[in-house]
Amino acid sequence: MNRIPAVLLALLAVPAAADEITVAVAANFTAPMKQIAADFEKDTGHKAQLAFGATGKFYAQIRNGAPFEILLAADDNTPAKLVTEGAAVAGSTFTYAIGRLVLWSARPGFVDAKGEVLKKAEFNHVSIANPKLAPYGSAAVEALTALNLIDAVQPKFVQAENIAQAHQFIATGNAELGFVALSQVMKDGKISEGSAWIVPANLHQPIKQDFVILDKGRGKPAAEALMKYLKGDKARAVIKAYGYDL
């Protein structure tokens, strides 16, 4: 393993040896976390191995001995639950990002700037992450309910296991449009392809995404370092660039 220059060490106040940690990351946070992990390794010498997936599945795996040291959940319930059950470090939870929901289509011009397309109902399938499992899915249901459109749109739901698959259904054109995380379709502060309506945040409960250090990461310097790093300006700038609120 690489030794870190002493100056950098003093600057960041991290321990001498570079460490490797395994981090379970909510699917919607895939793109920003890859970037943050690369910066993190460059700046601290610690290596973060990333596993992406659905928070509910991670919960089941963590409770059954999965080797994750940190969880970046898609919600705030799961980290809190893990702490209550003694599977995570109390006091290590914090909200690293607040998710924004977007109605997105791979076709340019299909989704208008106000989401009126939902009322026209000229589509067969609306892709959505399973509302029972995924915070972005339940936020979409809340928004549709607030708009009085739930009864009209629900029969057209196709449910994905997580937000990454919801995106895939739309990207392949099998669903004309659907609800995904803004972070999946935004790059450098802009919608990178297709057409989108950013759902106003007041139409659903805030999608608070919490960080927690798990039992296996207790006392590990790299875990503490990543926690500090995610709270830092550099990481926060990346998170904001992907469309998250903070």
Partner: peptide, 20 residues
């Protein structure tokens, strides 16, 4: 697409139960 009575088969239903 996990649609009840159309495409939600037993194996998918089990997966959903476990995740939930």
């Amino acid at each position: 697409g996990n649609i009840p009575e159309k495409t939600r088969v037993v194996s998918v239903q089990i997966y959903d139960h476990v995740e939930a």
